[in-house]
């Protein structure tokens, strides 16, 4: 049956965040010296602008999560966690059904809950935090230059870089896992249109397959 799974703001937030994170990765790794595309000066300017945009987006998304109660989607659970892992490791090759039923009220499987909770409570705060220190660890004031006394950029930069690698690894995995929905593209379509055909009464539910 067709369900409205992802609301308008949720989809906007998701795609805007996706574009910003990819753009931040591109400009960020140019600042890091790994690639050459815009040139260092432009890369810095774009990276800062995109970072501010992402922070504004995060502020709105945070408000949305809290006021709609959607944050509860991300509370990790142990229930079905191993089954979900087992599904990705073996069940998926046998054509076994998804062990977790997706409904508009519970969109995420236990592994997703765990990973997204990690993103939201650890990785994103790490990137925003280290990014802010990176930008402001020394900053000019009107008549003098005041230093945020963190001693130097080294650990800030290393934390930011390490976070970037983790985030990029997440993006790769995420892009691939999009194809593991009910069909190859059902997840993608759902995040674009908001609608997804979800099995209401799945004869091959977890209980049946066990």
């Amino acid at each position: 049956m067709r369900h409205y799974v992802y609301g308008g703001f949720e989809r906007f937030w998701h795609w805007a965040q996706a574009v910003l994170i990819l753009f931040l990765a591109l400009t960020g790794f140019e600042i890091h010296g790994s690639i050459h595309f815009f040139g260092f000066e432009q890369a810095v300017a774009y990276h800062s602008t995109a970072a501010y945009a992402l922070m504004v987006l995060i502020a709105f998304a945070g408000f949305w999560h809290l006021t709609t109660g959607e944050w509860r989607q991300y509370v990790p659970t142990r229930e079905n966690l191993l089954k979900q892992a087992d599904y990705y490791l073996s069940g998926i090759f046998r054509g076994a059904p998804h062990p977790t039923k997706k409904t508009p009220l519970s969109k995420l499987n236990p592994l997703q809950k765990l990973v997204y909770a990690g993103l939201k409570t650890f990785l994103i705060p790490l990137m925003v935090g280290s990014g802010l220190v990176y930008m402001f660890y020394r900053y000019p004031q009107r008549y003098s230059v005041v230093s945020l006394k963190v001693g130097g950029l080294e650990w800030v930069a290393i934390a930011h870089t390490a976070g970037a690698f983790l985030l990029l690894a997440f993006v790769i995995t995420h892009l691939y896992l999009i194809t593991t929905g009910q069909t190859l593209t059902s997840n993608l379509k759902a995040m674009i249109t908001g609608y997804e055909d979800l099995p209401d009464e799945d004869p091959h539910g977890p209980a049946a397959s066990a």
């Binding site: 600042i31 890091h32 010296g33 260092f40 130097g152 950029l153 080294e154 930069a157 290393i158 870089t161 390490a162 970037a164 690698f165 983790l166 990029l168 690894a169 790769i172 995995t173 892009l175 691939y176």
Partner: peptide, 26 residues
Amino acid sequence: YLPGRDRNGPVDAAGVGLLAATLAGV
């Protein structure tokens, strides 16, 4: 630490390794 000039060797190596492993995995 000068951005663009400096990097932490082990962190960069681990990062690139992670990305390669992830890509290979998927």
